[in-house]
């Protein structure tokens, strides 16, 4: 962390020196910001759909603010490192970060983290993940009712590569008075393969992970575990439509460290809103089956904050919450 602060300070100093040159080409924006390129910290690896979205947004933002916008993957600590780096970065508007639920909702409850909600200023959201319950094609369980009936008589397991995917299963279990056993997987394909091979009963993942196998008749989509039905399988109902108040909600958006000058912040918000409405990005998202969903800074904050009670309840129930 020491090193990164040093970098940021050095960078700011250099920016001061170079400001005249960098903004010279664009006199209309010759005020303080942006004098150099903006970095988006992404706490997941290249290849995930969140990373693809961040890169798409960066492309639109580059055009919008007239300065380079680059994506920097900061991995490690299950995404904690990226979050901590964002919180510790200088609030000058040159460092923003992709925010998902884990960093703000899960980690602070279970361990000491070097940031709080107040460390960040939210800039707006661009998308929301779809989740679905996948089950091996050959399984005798055909409906959610079958599933609940099975869970009353035996141990029913589900795999997922992140706890947030499984929120719907925990809520479903609570609503129906049964328990589903979570088996954490390290990667998305591992979670899927275990369900197809019958090693676990179910899998909770996003469409990019499940679609190839659903199309290949190895998996069935039992229900959508999100608020909406999947656009590519409109006949499969959501858990809510089936009468269970259960949904995994993971909004994707951006935040910067608290204390960024209002002028820079306004421009960032504007650029992100523009990206959220970009047709090309929306098309890319549709191909990845991610729900494009433009959210203002306040809406995005609310979307995450409203999850807090649910997640906390789950963590308490799982006796994972730090004391």
């Amino acid at each position: 962390m020491k090193r990164r602060n040093f970098l940021a300070t050095g960078g700011a100093f250099a920016a001061g020196l170079g400001a005249g040159i960098a903004t010279g080409s664009n006199p209309a924006r010759a005020q303080a910001w942006p004098a150099r390129e903006v970095t988006i910290i992404v706490a997941v690896g290249p290849g995930s759909s969140a990373d693809a979205i961040a890169r798409g947004v960066a492309k639109v933002m580059t055009k919008e603010i007239g300065a380079g916008v680059q994506v920097k993957n900061v991995l490690g600590g299950a995404g904690l490192t990226g979050f901590a780096e964002l919180a510790a970065s200088k609030p000058d508007g040159y460092t923003i970060g992709l925010v998902n639920v884990g960093g703000l909702l899960v980690f602070p409850h279970i361990m000491k983290v070097p940031y709080t909600w107040d460390s960040f200023a939210f800039l707006g959201g661009v998308a929301e993940n779809y989740y679905g319950i996948g089950i091996a094609e050959a399984s005798p369980i055909k409906t959610v009712e079958d599933l609940i009936a099975a869970a009353r008589t035996r141990r029913v397991t589900y795999s997922a590569s992140a706890i947030m995917n499984g929120v719907a299963m925990i809520q479903l279990g609570n609503a129906a008075g049964v328990k589903f056993q979570f088996v954490p997987s390290s990667t998305q394909p591992e979670a899927v393969a275990q369900a197809v091979g019958g090693h676990v009963d179910l899998v909770l993942q996003t469409p990019p992970d499940l679609v190839p196998l659903i199309e290949g008749k190895k998996l069935r989509l039992l229900a959508s575990a999100t608020g909406n039905r999947w656009p590519n399988y409109p006949e499969v109902k959501t858990l809510k439509e089936l009468g269970y108040d259960a949904a995994s909600v993971v909004p994707l958006g951006f935040a910067c460290p608290a204390g960024v000058p209002p002028e820079a912040r306004a421009k960032l918000e504007q650029a992100i809103a523009k990206a959220a409405g970009d047709a090309e990005l929306a098309a890319a998202m549709r191909n990845l089956t991610i729900m494009p969903r433009a959210m203002t800074a306040a809406q995005f904050y609310q979307a995450i904050k409203s999850q807090e009670a649910t997640v906390e309840g789950i963590l308490v129930a799982a006796s994972m919450k730090k004391t």
Binding site: F6, L7, G10, G11, F13, A14, L17, G18, I21, A22, R36
Partner: peptide
């Protein structure tokens, strides 16, 4: 590893 020097060259 980059400091002021490297960053100005990169710019």
């Amino acid at each position: 590893p980059a400091t002021v020097l490297e960053q100005s060259i990169l710019r």
